[in-house]
Write a protein that binds this DNA or RNA. Structure first.
Lengths: 334, 334
DNA sequence: TTGTATGCGTTATCAC
DNA sequence: GTGATAACGCATACAA
């Protein structure tokens, strides 16, 4: 593959001049510029980003480690990150942690070795030593969606407390009193926050918090199904099941269907997270939607700031309630 | 950040020795090895993959350019590719073409500059000059899912002809005669093949091929919806709508629902591509499933062979019919 | 078994 | 405006 040297020879100039026109980093005579361009075209020269990175100590690449690539929430997030990065001329390397700390670390390590300029991390449960070291080493880092307590790292995330409150108010208005929640892992900030928000909202609206209506899930479909099964077996089953993420809602849906129950006639269903196919179900699922596009874009911009050495503030966006028809609503307006 | 030099100094050996223990490329005395390890740990040394790549002329990274990251088919494919690559110690950089040739080229160019060892490409419609050049330049390349005629590039893909035939037979057995198809773009190999398979199957089973039952879509949900709308407006609408991919099936589903029609009572629906939530709809959607995991894994292995300089044969796997209940089936068995 | 020295392709410094 | 050249961090040929 052709290198600057080849281009220089063909154009009859020095490699320095070639580099100058390639990066238009300094004044170059029109004639030289033209000859270089011609040589570049003729040779089909492509700059070697590896060599450039070695020299400049910058890869123009950021890493993104997401929780689970099969979760549509993260897919959409990845896409948003990607879009924003592209407009900034950045490449993004995606790592799929599959919700496993050791796999997260695998990617963090790889990304570190690839010398990405910065890292967007949706951290799995624990603070791993590697993550701690990475922070300590000063690599520009921004947490996305989830956060880790006790680490000096800015986070870009959505707050769902108000939306959860609105959901509970909505359900109460519809006449529901027995609302159950299938939570995410308490080890994840998002898991904890949603559970806290739910419990607070119940209290605020004067609804009883029944321990048996709190099922612990892990953000995966199977746990949603299992949780729903236990809830539906209860002597006094809930009127509405609120799933802590879209995958668990899917699991709950399965279980409800498998039991031959009808939504919302026999039991209502609501979900934290909105995904495209929720609107295509019959009935469409009432959900709490996060500003995923914004989350992704803001995260990239925050990281770019950090890479540029500027300090950044945490970003908290608001999730919102999307009233549809899975909880006994008669109209679809919110 | 610590380099081999720092490690060498701390361990009291030369950089050559450090390199040797890092890659265990040659015999090193136990004592030296231990001191190097200790130094590596103490400094938190991380090899610089950029420098290593420059020196070895290999990045241990492959590129994957997919059609559309929001399409669950490609998401699952990406995950499979990722999994297999990881077991081979390869990193994968994903580019999302968004079904746009210019965006595909953007990523191919970036990936080329990053000097990936090989490229997995789900090509968009046309052969772009860049793709042609890339082939000519000899970069290890494998087409995935889709192929491009007239290029000497091995492809890993699924053949759905038998499954489509089985679907038509299945529908005929259920008493359907008027079957419509919403096709993908004729410019894509997958689009063409599915349409051809459908037409052949109709003929083979003695069913009439009505031009008005062939709607041209573009693999996106909107076109599926529009196609379904036109089909349902026909004086004699079809009994079953077969969508050429999962997104168009989604669009068709929307349209059917919006018209207040019932599946399968008023009209049946079948889809090429299977996605997880098809089984969660009511009724679950009869579909043609591709061996996505295998597709991804085989593609990575094929590419690895090409990178190693060995020739590889094209791979064709079989898609299969998944009978569910959206076409008037009474039992769910296939 | 170990160390020295070279070069990978690029950018940047410094002379001219 | 331009060119020689050093240096980035690493792997390796060669010498010891």
């Amino acid at each position: 593959m052709a290198s600057v040297k080849d281009v220089a020879k063909l154009a009859g100039v020095s490699v320095a001049t070639v580099s100058r026109v390639l990066n238009d980093s300094a004044a170059v005579s029109p004639g030289a510029r033209a000859r270089v361009q011609a040589a570049v075209d003729e040779l089909g020269y492509r700059p070697n980003a590896v060599a450039r990175s070695l020299r400049t100590d910058a890869t123009r690449t950021i890493g993104l480690v997401i929780g689970d690539i099969l979760n549509p929430f993260f897919t959409e997030l990845a896409r948003a990150v990607e879009d924003e990065a592209r407009t900034l001329g950045l490449s993004v390397v995606i790592g799929n942690a599959d919700e496993r700390p050791e796999r997260q670390d695998h990617y963090v390590r790889t990304l570190l070795e690839q010398r990405v300029d910065g890292l967007l991390l949706c951290p799995t449960a624990e603070i791993t030593p590697l993550v701690r070291d990475t922070v300590a080493a000063g690599l520009p880092l921004v947490f996305l969606d989830r956060t880790l307590p006790g680490l000096e790292v800015p986070a870009v995330r959505a707050d769902g407390a108000a939306a959860v409150d609105a959901l509970v108010a909505h359900l109460k208005r519809l006449g529901h009193r027995r609302i159950a929640f299938v939570s995410g892992p308490a080890l994840l900030s998002t898991g904890r926050e949603r559970t806290d928000a739910f419990i607070s909202a119940l209290a605020r609206h004067g609804l009883e918090v029944r321990p048996e209506y709190l099922e612990a899930g892990d953000f995966q479909a199977a746990s949603g199904r299992a949780g729903a099964a236990r809830l539906l077996e209860l002597p006094e089953p809930p009127e509405v099941i609120f799933a802590g993420d879209n995958l668990m809602a899917l699991g709950a849906l399965d279980e409800i269907r498998a039991r031959g129950l009808r939504i919302p006639g026999d039991v209502g269903l609501a979900s934290y997270d909105d995904v495209p196919w929720f609107t295509h179900l019959d009935p469409p699922i009432t959900a709490i939607g996060q500003p995923v596009q914004d989350l992704g874009r803001r995260a990239v911009r925050a990281l770019a700031e950090r890479v540029a050495g500027r300090p950044v503030e945490p970003v908290v966006l608001q999730a919102r309630l999307l009233v549809r028809r899975s909880c006994g609503e008669t109209e679809g307006s919110g």
